[in-house]
Every structure is written in C-alpha cells, then in structure tokens.
C-alpha cells in the first residue's frame, strides 16, 4: 500500500456521487487523488499535475471524455499519459473511437466493483501487490 503513496490518480466523472466514492476509495488506498467533474477542468488538472493514471468518464457536460482525450493526446506529456475510460454499455462505439486515439484500456463502470478498479489501476502502474489478484478479472 505504501507504494501507492507517490502515485497520482485523476478521476474525471460528472456524477457527483460516483466521483466522490472513487476519489475516497483511491485516497484510502494511499493514492494522491485529483477529481474533476468535466473534461475541461479534467484537462487542466491533468496538464498541471501530470497524474500517473487518468480515469475518464465519456458522457460529461461542458467537455466530454473523448474531446478531453483528444486534447490530452496533443500534449507532449499527455500523449503518453495512462488513461482508462469509464463507460456505459451504450458508449461502445465511442470507446472504439477512443481506442484509435490511443486510450488503451476501458472498463464498464457498473460491471466493476471499486476494489477491482483499484486493482486494475495498480496493475497498470506496476504496483506488485496487485499482481496476484489481477487474474480474478
């Protein structure tokens, strides 16, 4: 758990409750958490804080996840940033589009428990503790 201490995660999600529960869960796991309620503030935070991983919702007001991803990829740092898209089933065509843009991973929100999302993030960031558990998914 200590390993997560120096890891920064950015959660971009417009649903207040979901955003809050994910932010708190990652905080409890020892991550430094940044949260944003739309793509515009998410992009600003991402470029400022350079998080190790970004959890990005797709359907959002002001600026949606895909537009934020597009803008993020134009940035030197953002072009390589780790992104996991948070989706609903109905967004599948959008996810396919995002994959072209280089977002390598996605998950369907309601299919995933918070602890599994955390495991997936840890795995992505190469945090050893998660290795054994990752096969569950």
């Amino acid at each position: 758990m200590a390993e997560a201490n120096n890891k920064k995660v950015l959660v971009v999600e417009d649903d207040e409750a979901l955003l809050s529960v994910m932010a708190d869960s990652f905080t409890i796991e020892g991550f430094t958490v940044f949260s944003a309620a739309n793509g515009a503030s998410g992009l600003e935070l991402a470029l400022k804080e350079h998080p190790d991983i970004i959890l990005l919702d797709i359907q959002m007001p002001v600026m949606d996840g895909l537009e934020m991803l597009d803008k993020l990829r134009q940035d030197d740092w953002g072009g390589r940033a780790e992104v996991i898209l948070l989706t609903n089933f109905s967004d599948m065509d959008k996810v396919a589009k995002a994959a072209e843009k280089g977002a390598y991973d996605y998950l369907v929100k309601s299919d995933w428990k918070t602890e599994d999302i955390i495991k997936k993030v840890k795995n992505k960031l190469g945090l050893a503790e998660a290795r054994a558990a990752i096969d569950v998914n």
Partner: peptide, 9 residues
C-alpha cells in the same frame, strides 16, 4: 451504480 459503490466503501 453510485449507490452500490458507496455502500461498498
């Protein structure tokens, strides 16, 4: 989904 995750937490 949010409610479920809140309860988990």
């Amino acid at each position: 989904d949010a409610t479920k995750k809140i309860i988990e937490l």
